[in-house]
């Protein structure tokens, strides 16, 4: 059989066999395999994409956590600062108030003391005046019973007055 002239019998069988093989493989063979492999590669792609997304989300979350943490720290510092400022102001206010109060009380006390002293002095003066008047009365009453003595006394008084006038 010649090499380069296609033999009809072989052409016939080849066409038949290849058609059958093609039909079987195209129907039950290759599409199933390639389809499944494609599905798998799609799934792998999908999984990779999901993993990447998850990673991104995780990073985002981490960032947010970091953010929250630093925010909280700042807040804490602020609160502490405020608290200490508040406490300082409260203390100083209380001190001021106390000082004020104390000075008020002192002033009051001083005024009262002054008033008391005044009234006491007044009382003493009055008593002294009364007493001296009474004493003088009594002395005068006793001494002026005699004429001589009266005259002497009057002289002395006049001298005294004169002396006090000279002095001044």
């Amino acid at each position: 059989m010649s090499l380069i002239t296609p033999d009809f019998g072989l052409l016939f069988w080849m066409t038949l066999i290849f058609a059958v093989v093609f039909f079987i493989l195209a129907k039950f063979g290759f599409p199933i395999i390639t389809g499944m492999v494609e599905k798998r590669s799609d799934r792998i792609d999908e999984s990779l994409r999901k993993a990447e997304e998850a990673e991104k989300a995780l990073a985002e979350m981490d960032e947010r956590r970091q953010q929250i943490l630093s925010d909280a720290k700042a807040e804490q510092a602020r609160i502490l600062r405020e608290a200490s400022a508040t406490s300082d102001s409260i203390v100083s206010k209380a001190q001021d108030k106390a000082k004020e109060e104390a000075s008020k009380i002192l002033e009051q006390a001083r005024i009262e003391i002054a008033a008391e002293k005044e009234s006491a002095l007044r009382d003493i003066r009055r008593v002294v005046a009364t007493l001296s008047v009474e004493v003088a009365e009594k002395v005068l009453r006793a001494d002026l019973d005699e004429d001589e003595k009266q005259g002497a006394y009057l002289d002395r008084l006049i001298d005294e007055v004169q002396r006090s006038q000279d002095k001044s």
């Binding site: 080849m14 059958v20 093989v21 063979g29 395999i33």
Partner: peptide, 16 residues
């Protein structure tokens, strides 16, 4: 051709 085709079909169908 028949034998080889049979082998081919078997191989591919077993894979499928």
């Amino acid at each position: 051709l028949m034998v080889n085709s049979l082998i081919l079909v078997l191989i591919v169908l077993l894979t499928a």
